[in-house]
Design a protein around this nucleic acid. Structure first.
Lengths: 127, 127
DNA sequence: CTATCGATTAACCAAGTGGTTAATTGAAGG
DNA sequence: CCTTCAATTAACCACTTGGTTAATCGATAG
């Protein structure tokens, strides 16, 4: 993921790591310091720091300095946007549409094979 | 993303690319060949092929061979799962909870600063 | 048979990712 | 002061990613 990517790509890329998703899940139970967030993981502090930087870069968390601690908390707006994007695909999984489309397609193709031998299912130009 | 990653990571990683998201969007309007899918993009055929392989690896599309064409169509199940995962965070963006938490926290911290000078907002051990 | 066409594979490259250890910064405590 | 502690930065590493061009494969059309 380059830092020139669009916000949605940055969000999805940030979510594409189980450690980072676990950190986000932990933050739903309340704010935490970097040390507290890293404690469950068998991972060095710099590694956690990098994960947090990715999450911050995606706008998924906010950090605030408190003395020598960095308090992290959730910023769910990007998840909302990602959720919205996925929402557009809902009709494809509701009502087993996947399997319906598969069935229709299979039927259509078999029939085309029998009749015209290769009549395409779409206006695909055959020279 | 390694191929040993969990399904959710693979799905999010696959979605973290605008070309791949555009391909998925195109497929909501019906199946298409690889050539048709790649036509809108200023990109070589192998590049499209790789994108499709990523999408297929994530279970987001299925390919079927028809003569010399590969017909691609949407498989929305992984999106459904991703959607479900994001759903758990809904309460953090509904009702402007983000800003509410921010306000409460700021107030709490300011007060702590005035009274005990550093009393932590969590059971953070101070040696 | 041969040329062509859709698509993939192979080989390569620049840049990014996820991790490490070592060094650094900044605030608190003795 | 000087040390300790939370956290980050620096430098490095192996591996992945997203793209390229060239070569290959399988099916179709002449």
């Amino acid at each position: 993921m380059a830092n020139t990517d669009d916000p949605l790509s940055i969000t999805f890329a940030a979510l594409a790591d189980p450690t980072r998703r676990a950190i986000l899940a932990r933050l739903t139970r309340g704010e935490a310091t970097v040390g507290e967030l890293g404690e469950p993981f068998d991972m060095s502090a710099p590694a956690i720091s990098k994960h947090l930087r990715v999450l911050e870069g995606a706008g998924l968390i906010a950090r605030e300095v408190d003395a020598r601690w960095r308090i992290c908390r959730l910023r769910a707006k990007p998840m909302h946007d990602a959720h919205d994007w996925l929402e557009a695909y809902r009709r494809h999984w509701e009502g087993n549409l996947d399997r319906l489309v598969e069935f229709v397609e299979r039927t259509h193709r078999a029939e085309a094979r029998k009749t015209a031998r290769g009549a395409p299912r779409a206006p695909r130009k055959k020279p």
